[in-house]
Design a protein around this nucleic acid. Structure first.
Lengths: 160, 160
DNA sequence: CACAATTCAATTGCGCACAACTGAATGGGC
DNA sequence: GCCCATTCAGTTGTGCGCAATTGAATTGTG
């Protein structure tokens, strides 16, 4: 069984083969991520949330309230992404942002009553996503485990 | 072994547990995809390419020339993404776009000599990426296989 | 206390992803 | 031959992702 269905016609030796393998893995990751995004898009449409906004609400539903910094650490996002996103969530009446009294630099994000109510509607989402993924739980667990390891390695290689 | 390190404090029953599991899997996918993006960003910087542009060049290096439509099918991207991207690649002198003679609707994208030369510099990229991923080949194969299955399922569930 | 370095959130700029739409070219049914 | 539906690429608008910068608040050091 070959990975691409045809032999490379371009020169380059071993590295050219790696180019193909490389394409398969990273492209697969990218494609899977966007495929999930598509399913989430339709599932979250009725809630008026995008997938990143949904992730933020998930964390807030768990923790209640926390500063932007910690939100970013949990979600692996920086203020450049979170600031406008949180602004939109605030405009939608789902969260409030207020400066911390004991540290005027940080902004505490917390859910509004409407934001907490939204959780009821979100409860049915994961089951639909898992059904669409169509993989047995063991495979999903294995997938999550592999992804976690690869992410940790990549972060170590990049960030320092 | 628990997945999150703490039990949920919020109400919701089974669905609440699924919410957590769901967060782990899809968030892991998202995070891994962006972690790869970070490594590619630095590796491709010297070539003046972004990761999606690199994917386009990979396909063109393999196939030489093909219409935007087929490029989009290979990469799972539509014209809304490809048109401006190809415009930038053309502005960089790496590809040319020309209307097909036998079908004036379609645009054929092909590499320029400079675009083909760039392949030499790209040959070293995959090895660095694979090294940064730090997973044995068997695990990478398993990962790719799982991702392929989940993507196929999700596409079938979404697109029809 | 003063001053430099650090830590925050926010902003700017650029590129990708996707939905919705436009407009030209094509092809099938009549 | 003439429409009408379809197939293309391109454009517009919105939102994410990230680098780089800004500016205010805080902390550490002398």
């Amino acid at each position: 069984m070959t990975w691409h269905g045809e032999t490379p016609r371009t020169p380059g030796g071993e590295d050219a083969d790696l180019l193909l393998l490389d394409q398969q893995i990273c492209f697969s990751l990218n494609a899977a991520s966007r495929a999930f995004g598509g399913v989430y898009r339709t599932a979250l449409k009725e809630l008026g949330l995008t997938y990143p906004q949904y992730l933020v609400m998930l964390v807030l539903w768990e923790d209640g309230a926390l500063p932007v910094k910690q939100l970013g650490e949990r979600l692996r996002l920086d203020s450049g992404t979170l600031s406008p996103l949180l602004k939109r969530l605030e405009a939608a009446g789902l969260v409030v942002r207020e400066r911390s009294p004991e540290d005027e630099r940080s902004v505490i994000v917390s859910t509004t009553p409407a934001g907490r109510e939204l959780r009821e509607g979100a409860l049915s989402v994961p089951r639909r996503i898992l059904a669409a993924a169509g993989l047995p739980l063991d495979d999903l667990r294995a997938l999550r485990e592999l992804l976690g390891r690869v992410t940790a390695n990549l972060d170590a290689a990049t960030g320092a």
